[in-house]
Design a protein around this nucleic acid. Structure first.
Length: 712
DNA sequence: GCGATATCACACTA
DNA sequence: CTAGTGTGATATCG
């Protein structure tokens, strides 16, 4: 199959073609190279900061096998020659290993010393985690250690839901239901699923609050900061994790994870200070007590030097530095600065979160968890007569690239260095507003099989699926909360998107404005009509043919692309006649899709459950799209049973007819270079047959712990 | 028109 | 309970 007919052939051009692409077969369904899903591709052994080996993906899919995710792995000796501070070194600290470095020599400087009180506690936590990982062995039985805020979290929302024990078999296999309780143990110590879920719930609530605020709904009062409000609600309801403060990695948070609000770092326990840049804890060592730094956020407020991907010169806090209305003063060796100073001597791991401007949304920031660092040295500087502390943070070796990946992308964008394995800078040949690069740094394939790039849907005339509808008569732009707007009324009174174009919630159908409306084309209710917003890349995967990923960070609810192609006859398309291979590029609303919860839980807003909670796909009519001969980037998106992208039906008008489109949105925040995937669903006719026709199915290689084993 | 700058309300932990 | 820590959205300036 590989290297099939289309290989290296240049198809005849047609007047319609915007571009031609070379190709092999769609390999989304090829048989596995790694038959067992537990055999992760070898990208975990990449050098810390690149250059990455072919196909290296620095980020695990969220529920991919994470053998050592929560194991402290303290018994792997052979510390590499890491840079160590000079002078006497007090008792080395033990901590969680970096979560993504299985098989990499330990990064600890020893494991023979007696753990201190605090570290014994850490170890116990680690044991608990290991149990959890084996399938919620005793999630409920263990007493909750020192839980703050547990009382306030017991109220409401957790009505008699399924107990954890009744789910024990399934829980590890299936994403949990939103409303399900988070146990005290899980609140203390997280895991990957939980961290992801807490973040999803945070953003769902945040989007809903933004929507209500933008519509000026009186019910919630004025919320200037939906992020803080959402964070506050979740914290007080106990929808949070990793409350146990710890040195080292945080279970469930992976290097490369991205965040869009400081408060998100709090709810997953990565950095507990909602504003402060230095988080620390008091360590009791025999009779001594000393503060040690756990994590820092470098966001550009001070003149930190973040030029090098592996070294960070971090400024101490305080001194009223950079504040207009206050007199600058000396920084004092107290609080965070003191903790950093102690951490120099102790040489403990410190989590580093780097905040940078979001290129896609310049008014906001992105926070990247860049893994564990240690402070190599510290000194004082004098800035306009005032003392400032400086700390040289050096990244621990053996960790997957995170911030370094961003730096590489930045260079590609500036043209300073070309993307390794670049085949085409823009496979759309200008058909999209942004270029889509085609890259293969894995093998010899020169590109996907020929198709014509077409950025949207093409309805054939023979389908009379559409009807004229009346647009709104708003002037300028439709205003959230304006119930005179016909389009908002069609959406049930809610504006489907936030002011910055983020989808608030899934619904059976979204009605966007169109040329039939009198609002301007830049009206915010046209999110899915304006093409790509992030720089995408079609790339060669190691075992699943071509795939799609993004150079830009994508926040939850962001429109990614629509499924473009030809709308085909439902019955014919589904069975594909003799050419079963047509199935490869089919999108079919008739398939059975895993249900999942994405919208805000009304309980968190103390609202009665309403129609908004409905996340069923109820489509006005079935839609089958073939992207075999014409299509856009969506045709390269692979299947996953734990996807990070979902589809949403959107209706808007063109040429006096309403057309149904399939729009893809980000489920959670997606870091750059992480593969984009959605659930392909299962063909309904096969399901009805009872016996699944496995030969028609494709063996799934998504590698997720929720994997169904097949799809299609 | 766009970046810089000002203003404002605020949530976490020690 | 208070102090210490900037943040993120928006308005205004040059």
């Amino acid at each position: 199959m590989e290297g099939g007919s289309g290989y290296n052939s240049i198809p005849p051009s047609t007047s319609f073609d915007k571009s031609r692409v070379l190709d092999v077969k769609p390999l989304r369904s090829l048989k596995p190279v790694f038959p067992s899903t537990s055999e992760a591709p070898p990208f975990v052994c990449a050098p810390p900061n690149g250059p990455f080996p072919p196909g290296f993906t620095p980020f695990y899919p969220f529920s991919a096998p994470q053998v050592s995710q929560t194991s402290p792995n303290l018994n792997h000796g052979n510390p590499p020659p890491v840079p160590m501070p000079m002078g006497p070194i007090p008792a080395p600290l033990r901590a969680f290993r970096s979560s993504q470095s299985p098989g990499i020599p330990g990064i600890f400087n020893g494991n023979t010393t007696q753990p201190t009180e605090t570290f014994r506690e850490v170890d116990e936590n680690a044991d608990g985690l290991r149990m959890n990982e084996d399938g919620y062995v005793d999630g409920q039985k263990r007493a909750a250690p020192h839980l703050r805020g547990s009382s306030s979290s017991q109220k409401k929302t957790r009505k008699n839901k399924v107990t954890k024990s009744s789910l024990s078999g399934i829980a590890a296999k299936r994403p949990r239901d939103f409303v399900e309780d988070i146990s005290p143990v899980e609140r203390s110590n997280g895991n990957r699923e939980l961290v992801y879920e807490v973040l999803l719930r945070f953003d769902a609530l945040r989007r809903r609050l933004s929507q209500m605020e933008e519509a000026k709904e009186q019910s919630v009062g004025i919320i200037k900061r939906a992020d803080l409000k959402a964070g506050n609600i979740l914290m007080s309801r106990g929808v949070r994790t990793n409350m146990t403060r710890r040195i080292g990695a945080v279970p469930g948070v992976e290097i490369g994870d991205i965040f869009f609000f400081r408060i998100e770092l709090c709810v997953v326990g990565l950095h507990a200070q909602s504003m402060g840049g230095i988080d620390y804890m008091i360590i009791k060592d025999n009779l001594d007590e000393e503060p040690l730094a756990m994590s820092i956020v470098s966001s550009g407020g001070y003149d930190d030097d973040a030029e090098d991907g592996d070294v960070l010169i971090y400024s101490g806090q305080g001194g009223n530095f950079g504040k207009k209305d206050k007199q600058a003063s000396d920084q004092k060796l107290e609080r965070g600065n003191l903790a950093l100073e102690r951490s120099v001597r102790r040489a403990n791991d410190i989590r580093v979160i780097r905040g940078i401007k979001d290129a896609v949304n310049p008014s906001s920031k992105v926070y990247i968890y860049d893994g564990l660092y240690r402070i190599q040295e510290s000194w004082s500087e004098n800035k306009s007569g005032c003392n400032i502390f400086k700390y040289k943070f050096v990244r621990m070796p053996g960790q997957p690239g995170a911030f370094a990946v961003w730096k590489s992308i930045q260079k590609w964008k500036e043209g300073l260095s070309s993307r390794v394995g670049l085949i085409l800078p823009d496979l759309t040949s200008g058909a999209e507003s942004l270029p889509v690069s085609l890259v293969n740094d894995v093998d010899e394939e020169k590109g996907p099989a020929h198709f014509s790039y077409f950025p949207t849907l093409r309805y054939l005339k023979s389908f009379n699926l559409t009807q004229h509808s009346i647009g709104c008569d708003c002037h300028n732009a439709c205003q959230p909360g304006d119930l005179n707007c016909g389009c908002i009324r069609k959406n049930g009174g809610d504006f489907p998107y936030t002011n910055n174009g983020i989808l608030v919630g899934r619904k059976p159908l979204i009605h966007e404005c169109s040329p039939a409306c009198s609002c301007f084309p830049n009206c915010k209710n046209r999110v899915s009509q304006h093409g790509l917003k992030v720089h995408l890349e079609v790339f060669r995967t190691t075992d699943r043919g071509w795939g799609l990923r993004s150079w830009d960070p994508i926040r939850a609810g962001t429109f990614i692309c629509e499924y473009a192609g030809e709308v085909v006859d439902e019955v014919k398309g589904r069975r594909g006649g003799e050419e079963g291979e047509n199935d490869e590029y089919l999108f079919d609303t008739n398939r059975v899709y895993n249900t999942f919860k994405w919208n805000c839980e009304p309980e968190l807003l103390e609202e009665e459950s309403s129609g908004d909670a409905n996340e069923d796909y109820k489509i006005p009519f079935p839609l089958v799209i073939s992207a075999k001969t014409i299509g856009n980037v969506a045709r390269f998106m692979n299947h996953s049973c734990s996807p990070n992208v979902f589809w949403q039906p959107v209706l808007y008008e063109q040429s006096n007819q309403s057309f149904l489109h399939i729009a893809f949105f980000a489920m959670g925040h997606i870091p750059p270079m992480k593969e984009l995937t959605y659930d392909y669903g299962i063909s309904r006719s096969d399901e009805v047959d009872g016996d699944i026709e496995l030969n028609r199915k494709k063996k799934c290689l998504c590698g997720s712990s929720n994997c169904r084993g097949y799809f299609g």
